[in-house]
Design a protein around this nucleic acid. Structure first.
Length: 602
RNA sequence: GCCUCGGUAGCUCAAUGGCAGAGCAGCUGACUCUUAAUCAGUUGGUUCUAGGUUCAAGUCCUAGCCGGGGCACCA
């Protein structure tokens, strides 16, 4: 090739090549020069960020020769010299190329490298005039040519659909996203360390099961051709791990994927990662200690603190304020048909709405709670009959409900050093007491009809209680709607009604409840745990009741295993994704799962 | 499944029913210490899809696709 001939195709004004076509043309130009732009291997002797760090610390002196490899993430062209940023998993390092060092031809090739190309580089460490640790380039090889342009270097990726469908682009353009997933990996590693240190054995049990047991969720169905039968993807690990207890593996755990054929949401992905652990001769109290120690261990090791900053929830504050204004009809000029809030309250709430979600935080939620409570006092003063009324008046009911919705938003941190232990019944009783302004002192002293009436009329749960609900389900709705969302700080909710947990031991002191806890943090259930049912006869009865007469749903082999004898044991399940959300300050499960489930694109 | 918001250049975003634009990226040129480099010039569009209303549709209407949020479902 003649020295003055263009090394790369030039693109004229009327050229309509797309960005991909331009890159392909560059690729062809490289190949025409005998350069193979997709190499088999390259062995760097240090990472980009690692070299930078060791240079800063003085471990590598100025002038040290290094071999590094990475993706080009930025370039700054200075004419006869050029800077690029090279990035690998350890971090970023600047490379400085000079025409006189590389030679005309190599420098020309270097200048025409594209953002996102991978190169390997040899050079010496030095510091630029501005103090930036850099590599003075001596030679380089193209390791992989990128044929598609990366997302904008500064704005990054905002489109959630691309972020989730093409996570690699998200990882390329956001260091925070990458850090989140690297930390998730550390969390899982620390969980394993924790259990191994305690002498647990890690096992793997079937994901494809003939009878999906251990939970009551809808399973995914599949078909095995050679066996000619249906299989289900597992919905829980429980029944196989208990078989391990029968088999004499006394401390056992598994971390694995569960599959549930149900709705997707901010907190639900059809496949999610579950940890289950069982300890023979332990009970639910043993397992509460285990959960608390585990979570503290992981937080300390991975986050380096026991105080977690909650995910930003400004949008939720907005949503609740909007819903309230809508409910009282105060977002329009006309007054409400329920009651009229004071103009200054309305004004204050509109001021909250005027803020952006990023500006909104717990202080605003606290302010809203104060406003609503002042509003309640004002209403009760103006309507003395409402105070003495046997039922909660609509305005008060509405105010009470919204105060409760603001409660979880009033807390901006989670303190993992203080764990609370409260009984299910006490929490429900207290919530009802507060929501009815003391009218219903003891929810459990009412009869079934009374509870249903209070739930529908006083608590405003009419939309949440189906016609055929049994008594424990009505109470369950109160817990789910009014209690669980407010449990931000780590709380063990104990002694759940037996109908909720058919695989647990009854509480000897109160046979209507079971030795069960639900560990709630951040307003969601992170971990259930219990004293495992090891009485095969009682277990059969409970499972038959749950199966509702559908015999084919009974896992007879599991029951047979229990009949061979299972030691008393405590067990827990921990939703790893939700634990990660809490520890990593993420409000969507999709931000802690690398490739969340989306509808396939046609 | 329902409600709601959104889908415009490779990326981030604009555009009273009236010529589809900017920044970054790209391309061409200048510059041998820049780092969101700078400066000059410049290419790039099935405005998610299919219909409809209109002299005129990115914008309004209908249906659909995909996504976010909410609800329902989820012991």
């Amino acid at each position: 090739m003649r020295r003055d001939a263009p090394v790369f195709p030039t693109f004229r004004m009327d050229d309509t090549n797309s960005l991909i076509e331009q890159r392909k043309a560059k690729l062809a130009a490289l190949e025409a020069k005998g350069i193979q732009p997709f190499r088999n291997a390259f062995k760097p002797d240090t990472g980009c960020g690692a070299a930078r760090e060791r240079f800063e610390k003085g471990e590598l002196p100025e002038g040290t020769q290094v071999l590094i490899a990475g993706r080009i993430t930025a370039h700054r062209d200075m004419g006869k010299s050029q800077f690029i940023d090279l990035k690998d998993v350890t971090g970023r390092l600047q490379v400085y190329a000079q025409k006189q060092t590389l030679g005309d031809e190599q420098f020309e090739i270097f200048k025409h490298l594209d953002l996102a190309d991978f190169i390997g580089a040899r050079g010496t460490l030095f510091r630029t005039r501005t103090g930036e640790p850099s590599v003075k380039l001596e030679s380089f090889v193209i390791l992989s040519k990128a044929l598609r342009p990366p997302p904008a270097k500064w704005e990054g990726l905002a489109d959630p659909e691309i972020r989730y469908r093409q996570r690699y682009l998200d990882l390329i353009s956001s260091d925070e996203v990458k850090a989140t997933f690297l930390k998730r990996s550390q969390i899982v590693r620390e969980i394993r360390n924790f259990f191994h240190e305690r002498g647990y054995v890690e096992v793997e049990t079937p994901m494809m099961q003939a009878i999906p047991g251990g939970a009551a969720a809808q399973p995914f169905k599949t078909h095995h051709n050679a066996l000619g039968c249906e299989f289900y993807m597992r919905i829980a690990l429980e029944l196989y791990l208990k078989r391990m207890l029968v088999g004499g593996v006394d401390k056992v755990f598994e971390i694995g994927r569960n599959f549930r054929n149900e709705g997707l949401s901010r907190r639900h992905n059809p496949e999610f990662t579950m940890l289950e652990a069982y300890e023979a001769y332990g009970d639910y109290a043993t397992m509460m200690e285990t959960v608390e120690s585990l979570v503290k261990h992981v937080a300390q090791k991975v986050i380096g603190s026991l105080v977690m900053t909650r995910a930003p929830f400004g949008d939720q504050v907005r949503r609740v304020v909007e819903a309230f204004l809508l409910a009282v009809g105060a977002n329009e000029e006309n007054a409400s048909d329920i009651f009229a809030i004071a103009p200054e309250t309305r004004q204050a709430l509109l001021e909250v709405l005027a803020k952006t979600p990023a500006e909104l935080g717990s202080a605003d939620a606290i302010r809203c709670i104060d406003l609503l409570q002042a509003e309640k006092r004002r209403y009760l003063e103006a309507n003395p009959s409402a105070v003495s009324s046997p039922t909660v008046s609509k305005p008060v009911q509405l105010l009470n409900r919204f105060v409760r919705q603001f409660l979880p938003l009033a807390q901006s941190e989670i303190d993992l050093s203080r764990w609370h232990k409260l009984r299910y019944r006490d929490l429900v009783r207290q919530a009802v007491l507060e929501m009815t302004d003391g009218r219903v002192v003891d929810w459990f002293a009412l009869d079934f009809a009374g509870r249903k009436r209070v739930a529908m009329e006083d608590l405003g749960l009419e939309g949440d209680i189906a016609a055929g609900y049994e008594d424990f389900e009505v109470t369950g709705a109160v817990f789910e709607k009014l209690v669980e969302p407010t449990l931000i700080q780590p709380t063990f909710v104990t002694h759940l009604p037996k109908q909720l947990v058919p695989l647990a031991k009854l509480d000897p002191e109160d046979p209507s409840s079971v030795e069960v806890f639900e560990c709630c943090i951040n307003g969601q259930e992170i971990s259930p745990g219990y004293s495992e049912q090891n009485d095969p006869i009682a277990q059969r009865e409970a499972l038959e009741h749950q199966a509702g007469g559908e015999q084919q749903k009974l896992d007879e082999d599991f029951l047979a295993a229990l009949e061979h004898g299972m030691p008393p044991a405590g067990g827990i399940g921990i939703g790893i994704d939700r634990l990660c959300m809490m520890l990593l300050g993420q409000e969507s499960i999709r931000d802690v799962i690398l490739f969340p489930q989306l509808r396939p694109k046609a």
